[in-house]
Design a protein around this nucleic acid. Structure first.
Lengths: 204, 204
DNA sequence: TTAAAATTTGAATGTCAAGTCAATTTTTTA
DNA sequence: TAAAAAATTGACTTGACATTCAAATTTTAA
């Protein structure tokens, strides 16, 4: 990649980030290309030099986020650990990723309203890939006796677990919070119970 | 209420229901007044005889759903039962309500993109009211020893619990499923663990 | 039956924002 | 430094859709 291309790529990143931030405030349809441009002291027209259209601009940022999520699994799969330790690590990574990219993830909730069919399919494909990796982990935990889940309810349990986590984008706010690490520990403590419901002590 | 008014009220219900169904398919912004009208064999213009505008049409249906949810609590609060039994009942009612009104609830996820500030505040007010009732129930369950939650983590736990449930609107589909009652039982079994993590037998 | 009220119609209006593009300015490169 | 390439501009086009409204039609009630 030439210097020129690197600069252009950087500008694309900058635009995507800014766009996501504005869209987080005002929604996809509430955000105009004009809004995105002016925040970066550009004009609407030059956005089209970097992106084919508004859809593409936003779509690329979604794919980036999803690939980062999949990257977490690549990391965890290399761990020398049992299913429970791996799942705990995934819950932590998922939580942190979500908390720091709340705005970006919100667009994934109803992609139908925004993207083309091909784009939606690509998003679903990556989401499915991510979800399946949880299923593998749950199955592993059932086998080694650490998770107490019925085999034919794995998908339901995975959805409940990811639901508890993903819903954070609706209520969590970074402002005025103690550090994210502590927060993540609390989340993990309760969420892990869905699959491993033994009594654990809670400090009052 | 006169017969005339009853008929008009019924028509309003009919329009709201149809609108919600179409919006569930195509999204709020993807659904035109034309779409809503033609599905009911009306013309666009007459929708405005029943509703001030598109926003109001959709807003009213949201309020209706939220009031139904609050109604569940009125029912449960009258039960002669302990906190655990009440929470289980609420999880059941919440699940069923969501499953049968998936489409309607989806619009509540990002009200910022759709409604006016006053409308959003009203939606938040009702949601808050609903959430607080869970907090009361959780506190009650801590006191009587059935729930194992730290007092200062109640809100987090409530959000995780409601998140696990609400996320169903993303993945659950009524098609090709056994009856909802059985489904609800499975959901309850796992979700209750978040607050009450004792080992329960799972049939394999 | 008929006048009043309720309802429906569809054409017209207005707004808003996405996307285009030829011309201009800036940056690179040789 | 001069030609070429890259980047930016902003005015313009276009289409979509919400909303309005006067006129027509249908329903109600006396």
């Amino acid at each position: 990649m030439s210097l020129r291309e690197k600069k252009a790529a950087l500008k694309r990143e900058e635009i995507m980030e800014s766009a996501i931030a504005i869209i987080a405030e005002k929604g996809y349809h509430g955000t105009t290309m004009e809004d995105i441009a002016s925040r970066l002291l550009m004009t609407k027209g030059s956005l089209y030099y970097y992106f084919k259209n508004k859809q593409e601009l936003v779509f690329e940022s979604q794919i980036k986020l999803l690939n980062e999520s999949l990257g977490h699994f690549s990391f965890v799969e290399k761990m020398k650990a049992n299913a429970e330790e791996k799942l705990i690590k995934m819950i932590q990574l998922h939580t942190e990723h979500l908390v720091y990219n709340k705005a970006g993830f919100e667009l994934m909730i109803k992609p139908e309203e925004i993207f083309t069919e091909e784009q939606i399919n690509e998003i679903y494909r990556l989401q499915e890939k991510y979800a399946e990796k949880y299923d593998v982990l749950l199955k592993e935990g059932i086998k080694d006796g650490s998770f107490n889940i019925a085999e034919d309810e794995i998908k339901i349990v995975r959805n409940l677990l990811l639901g508890a986590l993903n819903w954070m984008m609706q209520w969590h706010s970074l402002e005025g919070k103690k550090n994210v690490e502590d927060f993540t520990k609390v989340i993990t403590k309760y969420v892990i119970r869905i699959v491993k419901p033994e009594l654990s002590s809670v400090t009052h």
